[in-house]
Design a protein around this nucleic acid. Structure first.
Lengths: 176, 176
DNA sequence: CCAGATATGTCAACATGACTGTCCCAAATG
DNA sequence: CATTTGGGACAGTCATGTTGACATATCTGG
């Protein structure tokens, strides 16, 4: 690698380096790469268990994400789900119709706005989502446990810091 | 949601709940879901900037991952790269031959084992990887900065906790 | 030194999940 | 009533993963 080990960055908080707190900070490339790699491998590892279940059912990650958010915000509209997933109407359309065909998801006409289709899980769908969630939970709980509760707030803080400020409200909104 | 708010977990460290440290711990579902969601949205957000560059070049994330790890471990073998990416030889083959055709990656016959093809970036490839890395870095540095250095070790700790113990050595090995 | 294991490459077929573009309908909104 | 909005449907494309089968060069153990 020819990229220098030390990278200038205008306005960062204190790092492990011995830098006076008020000075411009230099983050070492290794620290950045470590974050990138842990994010990649950690995310992959967390998903792995659920992937196996999905595979056995002939479903994919796209189905899981839809089930997850419908479970999380029962009664959300198709448009809201599209916004959370960040995909197009056409892409979601296929996933959603498969989930409906399997009897995992059902629609209701919106009450306030009758154009909307409000989504919720069927009993079967809720059971499936619970199985998938249990896998994610097992992994995440282990991560929390191994790191300790003190680490968890740092974990949250950095991840939220990755999300562009304009998008944060949407993420926070999931926390009821 | 019909899943209970409180989930039993055998052997976890202290949480925010008022639980005596030695007792079995109960992690609240919200804390788990928050981790899952932040991991999803944070990862997506970090990648976004690089995705735009890749798109403009007609490359995809698969190419980026290959470039990233070749940059990180210059001279690694095809088999090692397959192991890091967790994909099949055939999947990597396509990506790798595209990168070679574009003059971003080159191969050398292994010295110790002449069956191996050792991979490294060309000058052009290193420049491309540096551009992509700069985007990831921008995002990650902002996350670190907003959270503060103290949070970063918690961030690392939880993510490493997500990785199954057997796989951790491989992740650590990237840190030279 | 030879038989078998290993590292890599390649061809072919297929599945998933994204995309764009277009057209349509029903309901809300002004 | 005209326009906008929420949603559905159809068609085609692309990126990236998969299996399976086979080839070739090289290493390694008996």
């Amino acid at each position: 690698m020819t990229v220098p080990n030390v990278i200038p960055n205008g306005s960062l908080a204190a790092s492990q380096l011995r830098v006076t707190p008020a000075s411009p900070l230099f983050l070492r490339e290794d620290e950045i790469r470590r974050g990138i790699e842990l994010l990649y491998f950690g995310y992959t590892a967390m998903i792995r268990g659920a992937d196996a279940i999905l595979d056995a059912q002939g479903l994919g990650r796209a189905h899981h994400r839809a089930l997850y958010f419908i479970a999380r915000r029962s009664g959300l509209s198709v448009g809201e789900l599209i916004g959370l997933l960040g995909i197009t109407k056409q892409s979601l359309g296929r996933v959603l119709s498969e989930l409906q065909a399997r009897g995992l998801v059902e629609q209701m006409v919106g009450t306030a706005d009758r154009r909307q289709r409000l989504l919720r899980l069927t009993t079967t769908g809720a059971a499936m989502e619970a199985r998938l969630f249990a896998e994610l939970e097992r992994s995440m709980a282990r991560g929390y446990a191994e790191a300790g509760q003190q680490a968890v707030s740092g974990f949250w803080a950095v991840l939220m810091g990755l999300v562009p400020p304009d998008d944060r409200a949407r993420v926070e909104a999931l926390q009821d």
